[in-house]
């Protein structure tokens, strides 16, 4: 298993917002998680990126307990795309460079351009991020995450803040990239149709618990 959780739990203010979740994702598998708002989907992804600490249980990456992986290394290997792009002020290229630079590696112009063309933003490197549309910003966020060369990608409703045309385009783009890279994915959405389109497997989350379905 690429990614596995064992009774992963987070209690917040006396309530289990993630409740004994046991999830196993095979290498290259795309697991879609659907469920009503407030079900704990985002909270689960935050635990999988270790942005929050579980109050019980744990997770494993390639069989290694999260607690034995340095957080920065873990987050490099388990990338995350959020609902909003949260681009850093500056140029598109600055954003794409960010991840590798944290480890002292400077991406070349060619590498940046290759990442940008992967997300359909060829030639956007010098563009300032405050001049991008919502869909473009989210594409930059995707390129920025890919620059880290992640093994697992966590996606928290990556298209839900976009307008309809951008939604479809970003979904297609992600689908293509995931297939090409055989990325292991945990993708949260509230759109059941999207879940069916993208999934190897759809899981339903409710009240912090994960229920197995087809």
């Amino acid at each position: 298993m690429k990614l596995e959780t064992r009774d992963l739990t987070r209690v917040h203010e006396g309530r289990a917002i993630v409740d004994h979740v046991n999830l196993a994702v095979a290498t290259g598998e795309v697991v879609m998680i659907v469920g009503p708002s407030g079900a704990g989907k985002s909270s689960l992804l935050r635990l999988l990126n270790r942005l929050d600490e579980p109050t019980a249980g744990t997770a494993f990456l390639d069989g290694v307990d999260y607690r034995r992986i340095p957080p920065r290394e873990l987050r490099r290997r388990v990338g995350m795309i959020m609902q909003t792009a949260h681009l850093f002020p500056g140029s598109v290229a600055d954003n794409v460079r960010f991840g590798p630079r944290q480890r002292g590696r400077d991406l070349s112009e060619v590498e940046i351009e290759r990442l940008l063309s992967r997300v359909g933003l060829s030639g956007f490197g010098d563009r300032m991020v405050d001049r991008l549309s919502g869909g473009e910003a989210q594409r930059v966020a995707i390129a920025r995450a890919l620059a880290n060369d992640p093994e697992v990608l966590l996606l928290d409703e990556p298209t839900s803040a976009l307008d309809d045309s951008a939604k479809a385009a970003v979904e297609d783009l992600l689908s293509e990239i995931i297939r090409e890279e055989s990325l292991t994915c945990v993708w949260v959405t509230h759109d059941t149709a999207q879940a069916k389109r993208m999934a190897d497997r759809v899981l339903v989350m409710q009240n912090g618990r994960l229920q197995m379905t087809s």
Partner: peptide, 16 residues
């Protein structure tokens, strides 16, 4: 908060 956690999620050290 969103920017800070995004930076962390990209493997940045907290100070950065």
């Amino acid at each position: 908060v969103g920017h800070i956690e995004t930076a962390l999620a990209l493997g940045a050290d907290p100070k950065t």
